[in-house]
């Protein structure tokens, strides 16, 4: 393989990895906050893509400009899902973990079914972005602008997350609620409010990913499933609840996927990812950056 080919594979893997990390970040945030794995995460991604598509079709806005609206809507959706579903699932007296798993799993299937009914199972795609189809050519290494833009947004999101968690009252409340949800009530923090904001933030993060992906990917009621699978392994690989673990693991997954598709065979590319995960489980079961 030429040096140029190698550079292309690494660059593509890195860009895809940033997207994977962004999708996983929301999942990891919610898990870290309240030990709930959101099995409707892929459906959140799908809804964000449809929302972007809908806004673009209805208003002829560029999807890049539609993104803030989508992210806002996803924030509201996330908070709503917490109040409408998760809060009730958490009231279970026994097997609380299982109840949460099935509640989010059922939610995911419901959303997907409704999406198929409302949006039809036809494939959609956005043609009109000023980024669409444009590519940066760095001496034979091609970097598609939509993915570059996605990578940049992903980096910015992680920087913003860092500040939110480390520097704001909300971040401190988040950390404190994660430590001991019972004790925070004593200092006047409403745990429901923190959880709802956490779900909103988690959904907003996947909303960012969805609004960028809508530019370069096809849109379909089932589109979230393969991405959600990768997000689960990314979260587990990076360490449950560690947001920056998700970033590192997302990049790792993107690069390992690209390399194993090239060296082994494209049909084996998922094998590389799960192999690494198994090695990590063997060496460090809490994940690379897990501290739980």
């Amino acid at each position: 393989m030429t040096l140029q080919g190698l550079a292309q594979i690494l660059a593509s893997g890195l860009l895809m990895g940033l997207i994977y990390a962004l999708i996983a970040a929301g999942l990891s945030l919610i898990f870290g906050l309240m030990d709930v794995v959101n099995f409707a995460h892929g459906e959140f991604l799908m809804l964000a893509m449809y929302a972007t598509f809908g806004i673009v079709v209805a208003t002829a806005l560029d999807p890049v400009l539609a993104a803030p609206l989508v992210v806002g809507a996803m924030f509201v959706l996330g908070a709503f899902v917490y109040f409408a579903v998760i809060r009730h699932a958490m009231r279970a007296k026994a097997n609380i973990g299982m109840v949460q798993v099935f509640a989010t799993f059922g939610l995911g299937i419901t959303i997907r079914g409704l999406a198929q009914h409302v949006f039809t199972p036809d494939y959609r795609s956005i043609q009109t972005s000023f980024l669409a189809g444009r590519t940066l050519d760095l001496g034979g290494v091609f970097l598609p602008l939509p993915q570059l833009f996605g990578g940049l947004l992903s980096c910015l999101s992680f920087v913003a997350l860092y500040f939110i968690i480390r520097r704001t009252d909300f971040g401190r409340a988040l950390e404190a609620t994660r430590e001991d949800a019972g004790a925070v009530a004593l200092v006047g923090i409403d745990k429901n409010r923190v959880f709802a904001l956490g779900w909103g933030l988690g959904a907003a993060l996947v909303g960012i990913a969805g609004s960028v992906m809508a530019i370069f990917y096809y849109i379909h009621p089932d589109v979230g499933t393969p991405f959600a699978l990768i997000a689960y392994v990314t979260v587990a690989l990076g360490g449950f609840g560690s947001i920056f673990g998700a970033l590192a693991a997302g990049l790792l997954v993107g690069i390992v996927e690209a390399i194993s598709a090239t060296i082994l065979s494209p049909s084996m590319k998922a094998v590389g990812i799960y192999l690494i995960y198994l090695v990590v489980v063997f060496m460090r079961p809490r994940g690379l950056f897990g501290n739980l």
Binding site: G5, Q8, I9, S12, G13, M16, P226, F227, I230, E257, A258, I259, A261, T262, P266, K269
Partner: peptide
């Protein structure tokens, strides 16, 4: 597949 970059390469 989520991505076909390596394949197309």
């Amino acid at each position: 597949s989520p991505s076909l970059t390596a394949e197309v390469q």
